[in-house]
Amino acid sequence: MLKKLRRAGPPLLLLLPSLILVGVFVYGLIGVNFATSVTDNHTAAQATGQEPSVVVWFRNYLDLLGSEAFQHSLVNLVLFTVVFLVGTMVMGFAWAWMLDRPVRGEGFFRSIYLFPMAVSFVASGVVWRWLLNSNQGESASGLNRLFQMIGLDFLQNNWWNNVTFGIVAIAVPAIWQLSGYVMALFLAGFRGIPDELREAARMDGASEWKLYRHVLFPQLSPIALSALIIIGHMSLKSFDLIMSISKPANYQTKVPAVDMYVFKSSFDYANSAAVGAILLIIVALVIVPYLIHSNRSEKR
């Protein structure tokens, strides 16, 4: 017994501080958040205990999920995530594929594509708000003006002010910002594939397409999965970019994170916490299978 303690003790002691900190500040607070979300704590008076709040279990969740406004936010979130994911994956892969061939100035292009990631979402959001100005015709500016100048007038549109697809316009700057990161991931993946494999495939008479289809793509799939997970969870948590291009009250660009902020500002802590919990669950739905998967493959 004592021997066991001696062996396990020091490592446990070393880990303990971070365990405690993570336990209290991450899992503890998730617990508090969940506990708040199942109460009817919707007013400032209840938040400070001036008036009682009772546990209503999942009523907040049901009310939220049943409300048209929140459904609109969820739809926006899905639209945003799909476009953001597809956009970054396609752009990132295409760039990596092009840079993987021996090209002159590879380092230069790599930096160019990776650079937008160094800009904060808030700063780029302000610039993109001007670029995505929804005026058309004479008073147009930003991208709409650019389309006019190059004779592509029919491409003018109202960008993020479209009621249904406005949120997709905000995915454009997000794609611009993170495609370079996906490119870097894929490029590392390409570089990790030994040349011998390509040579062997060519020796066996594989065409270029077959080479990619049967040799390179399978080797890249773990990278693609990681990229999907990383971009996916970033997309679900998107808040700063949307806030700096649009405004919290704008209906066309509402997402759950914005709802959470608006609820909190009106002292509706229960709904705010419920939205937070829903977001956490959505992110977990994406991440947990991935963790299980990678855990299994490590054991193997």
Binding site: R129, S246, N250
Partner: peptide, 8 residues
């Protein structure tokens, strides 16, 4: 009567 880029 208002400008179309109002929300931004």
């Amino acid at each position: 009567y208002t400008n179309t880029d109002r929300d931004g």
